[in-house]
Amino acid sequence: MRFRHAKLLLLVALGLSLLVSLGADRIDAYVLFVLYNIGIYIILAVSLNLINGYTGQFSLGHAGFMAVGGYTAAVITNQFGALNPFASGALFFGALLAGGLLAAVAGLLVGLPTLRLKGDYLAIVTLGFGEIIRVIFQNMDRVGGARGLSVMHGYTNFFWTFGMAAVTVYVVTALVHSTYGRGFIAVRDDEIAAEAMGINTTKYKVTAFVVGAFFAGIAGGLYAHSTQFLTPGGFNFMQSIAIVVMVILGGMGNTPGVILAAILLTLLPEGLRWMAGVEHLPGIAKMHPLGWIGDTRMIIYSLLLIVLMLTRPQGLFIWRRKFRNAPP
């Protein structure tokens, strides 16, 4: 059985995140900001991979769950003034959890009625759901509507970002690497056979949606307290597609590949900016992480997808294991 020292690895990852976090004032603010984005996209991509990759449900609603978590956490922390580090840590953790839980509830609400739908239909409905969430926030004056919401505290740090990323990877991997969790893959491979083998396929699909949405909500909270400014537009369907591309690029149901894809695709726009010789502008980057490159990113992603689908439909980072005794 692989994944043996899982809990130990998780503790090591948490310890390392804390260590780096303590020395973070020595790291350039821009580099730190990009690192946070990497952590946030790892959470988003790995959690979506549970839904789209392992369970085989094509969801395009991840930005919607992220928005629910982001706005929830921001509204909570905005109620408080300056706090000592301990209290602020507790507050932030609580706010992240609340955002995750509310996103999970949203996942349940979308999941239950839509999971009868397959493939393209599910994609369209989840995409519609994401857009509805966005429009709701856009029309909610309480959170600034289309003007956006200022987030007072920049609580996101290295520990929370990569600690949460480690927890996400742990949870998804632990789930899938168990007798219970092989059911997710069974549902993806053949739903009729899964049902005939005693697997409650609806329950598995809803579970994938709820767990995936929970972590998307956490990522939203981290994002909110990193950029310190939320606009509904930041959670549009391009955001969902960006996460889907990471999952496809990494290889559906291949967590290490998906992590790698999340890192590369987060760095890509930064690299392009560097190649173009543009000085990085922390102010702009802060308000629109990745987004500033806008249409260019869209073109790059589209091209990437097309090239990928033509050349490596199984994903870029799938390593085929060799099977002894396997017949040709």
């Binding site: 632990a174 789930l175 690497h177 168990s178 007798t179 219970y180 969790g181 092989r182 059911g183 893959i185 069974a186 993806r188 491979d189 053949d190 009729i192 056979a193 899964a194 005939a196 083998m197 005693g198 697997i199 579970t207 149901g253």
Partner: peptide, 27 residues
């Protein structure tokens, strides 16, 4: 109708979830 991407072992193992004493929390 096998679970085509799962290994021979996992195809059979999956079905044992019917007799699991523990649940998700155990995993």
């Amino acid at each position: 109708r096998l679970f085509s991407s799962l290994s021979v072992f996992d195809n059979v193992r999956t079905v044992f979830h019917l007799h699991l004493r523990g649940d998700v929390r155990h995993a």
